[in-house]
Computed example of a mutant assay.
Amino acid sequence: MDTSKLTGSTAFITGASRGIGKAIAIALGKAGANVALFAKTGEPHPKLPGTVYETAEEIEAVGGKALPIIGDVRDEEAVADAVKKTAETFGGIDLCVNNASALNLNSLGEMEPKRYDLIQQINTRGTYLTTHYALPYLRESSHAHVLTLSPPLSTDAKWFAPGPYTASKFSMTIMTLGVSESESDNGIAANCLWPKTTIATAAVRYGLGGQDMIDRSRSVDLVSDAALAILSRNPSDYTGHATLAEDVLHEEGIDDLSPYSVVEGQTDFHQDLYVEKDS
């Protein structure tokens, strides 16, 4: 995988204190990028490992430059200020990665209004705010990408049972693909990325299936490697896709996915949400 186009670029990533966001941030740092980390976690959580400052340290340890910023994607002023600070610190923004997300699979009837508001504000509105304030800087870049961690769209009714969450994740995809259309003349690529299998994150451990599902998951490196591949591509050649991480890796010539298994030798992986079995 040729990541030379990422050397010296600047990325703004939301939710990068742990999990997939952290993995993408470190991978970009290793590729020589400047990475701004926007996340809420500045102090260690009693149950969830990782802070934005720890991620920054790991980025610098692999040769990248990091700018940790504490903030909430629901706060418009905080997002705007963080994006501006990133551009002022590094001289612009080339890559906008919408990773921050909240998970709640309750049905409409079971979900409290405050929980509904939370997932819509983080997932849908957070993606909107981050991308909106990054766009003026992306328009000035010669290698501009928006990458959102959201799924391909599906009309299969089985995904509509957790309606509030599905609406929020599909909205993230729709807005990102919309950017691909509205900003094509400005040379900005916009794509979405999603894994076929569950990924070993805190959200999977505590929000979905515990240790058993973790054992049947793949590592965050699978998504970060796919993200790096997309962000390295020519923006004019690759835009408007809502694609699966495994398919991206296949396009890069990576067909042996066994190194990404959490449990060595595992063959019974848990299918992720919004993915059909024949995908």
Rank of each mutant, 00 (worst) to 15 (best):
G32W: 08
K85E: 09
G21R: 04
S9Q: 09
V73D: 03
K22T: 09
T10S: 13
E77T: 11
V52L: 03
K40Y: 09
G29Q: 02
F38S: 05
K47L: 14
E43M: 15
F12D: 01
A39W: 12
G42T: 14
N34D: 12
P49S: 01
K22I: 07
K22E: 14
T41D: 13
G19W: 10
G29R: 04
E57K: 06
R74G: 03
A61Q: 09
G64N: 08
G29Y: 05
A33L: 07
R18P: 12
G64T: 07
I59S: 07
F12A: 02
E43C: 15
V79M: 09
R18Y: 09
T41K: 13
E76I: 11
I13F: 07
A25D: 06
I20D: 04
G32Y: 04
A61F: 00
G15F: 00
P49I: 01
L6D: 00
P49N: 01
K30D: 14
A16H: 10
D75P: 06
V73P: 04
T86D: 10
I24W: 00
A16Q: 05
D72Y: 14
A56S: 10
V73Q: 04
D72R: 15
Y53A: 13
H45Q: 09
G19Y: 08
R74D: 02
A25L: 04
A36K: 04
A36T: 12
H45L: 10
K30H: 14
A16T: 05
G29F: 02
T41G: 14
K22G: 13
V83Q: 04
K30L: 11
D75R: 10
E76C: 11
S9N: 06
T10G: 11
E58C: 00
I69A: 10
L6Y: 00
A11P: 07
K47T: 12
L6T: 01
G15Y: 02
G29W: 02
K47W: 13
A25W: 03
S9R: 07
K22S: 11
V79A: 07
F38V: 08
K84V: 05
K22L: 10
I70A: 12
P44A: 06
I70G: 12
G15S: 05
F12T: 01
P49M: 01
I13H: 03
T7S: 13
K40H: 13
K40C: 10
I13E: 04
L28Q: 00
K85T: 12
K65S: 13
V79F: 06
I20T: 03
P49G: 03
G32R: 03
G19C: 07
G50N: 05
H45S: 11
G8D: 04
V52E: 00
E77F: 15
V83R: 02
I26G: 02
V79C: 08
K65A: 13
L37T: 09
S9M: 08
D81Y: 14
I20R: 04
L48E: 14
A31V: 08
A33E: 03
V52F: 03
K30G: 14
E57R: 06
G15N: 06
R74M: 02
P68W: 13
I69D: 01
S9L: 09
I13W: 05
T51R: 13
V52C: 05
P49E: 02
E60V: 05
A27K: 00
D75E: 10
R74C: 03
L48G: 13
E76R: 12
